[in-house]
Design a protein around this nucleic acid. Structure first.
Lengths: 119, 119
DNA sequence: TTATTATATGAATTATAATTCATATAAACG
DNA sequence: CGTTTATATGAATTATAATTCATATAATAA
């Protein structure tokens, strides 16, 4: 497998609406399957399938306590990745509203620190 | 569309092997379709389809010069996102090699600055 | 104007992934 | 033990996306 294929797998694993919901909840600390299923309005088996997918991508890890299985993020940077990508996506879609084709580089007014650099 | 659905679209758009190749090339500066097709060993029409997908997600923008159409990233943070997610993914998969189920918090040896925090 | 070059498009096919449903496992409790 | 609770699993279905192929468009060159 090429590095792009592995990276694509990883990003697609994060890039699914229900899994993003799970990740946001886990960003707040570990949760057991029941807690996740309670908040997310989806079938229990579906949550389990998604958790397995996340685990296979090393995005979450689990721990058993009695009958319950607790999941948490394997790394805090995952929470940051989720947050940062949301911020970036939002800003890009805002930019798009005022966008036409870009011009060749040069003779532009400075746009340091603005939301839409090189708009 | 919920925010998770939009974000998932965005991440899945980046999370495709050929599009990741494109994004890495564009991280080095703008390229026309022919240049991309030359480097990536895929059909021209496929590259075009992928470029359109990236454009619809506001990830790239284009500019025409004679017959050629040049593409570039809409924002430098996209290059960073691609790099950072690769780094993180690689580290997580390395961690996985030594991993068993995690223990409950507490009585752990410090792991500040290590590759596998909370391993 | 016809030919060539560069890119885009749409329909058809194929591949991949999400979801559901029924059921399995396994811990705890009576 | 049998029952309940919590979670996982696998097969079947459905949805989504990637790829190919044939062809369209549009700028340029002859």
């Amino acid at each position: 497998m090429t590095i792009e294929e592995e990276q694509a797998r990883f990003l697609r694993c994060i890039g699914e609406p229900t899994r993003l919901q799970i990740l946001r909840l886990l960003a707040g600390g570990e949760r057991c399957v029941g807690e996740l299923t309670g908040v997310i309005n989806k079938e229990q088996s579906l949550i389990s399938h998604h958790l397995r997918a996340l685990k296979e991508c090393n995005i979450v890890k689990d721990r058993q306590e009695a009958q319950k299985i607790y999941y948490k993020l394997t790394d805090d940077r995952l929470a940051k990745l989720v947050m940062d990508s949301e911020t970036l996506m939002t800003e890009l879609s805002l930019c798009k509203c005022q966008e036409v084709n870009y011009e060749r580089e040069g003779n532009q007014t400075s746009s340091e620190g603005e939301i839409c650099p090189n708009g």
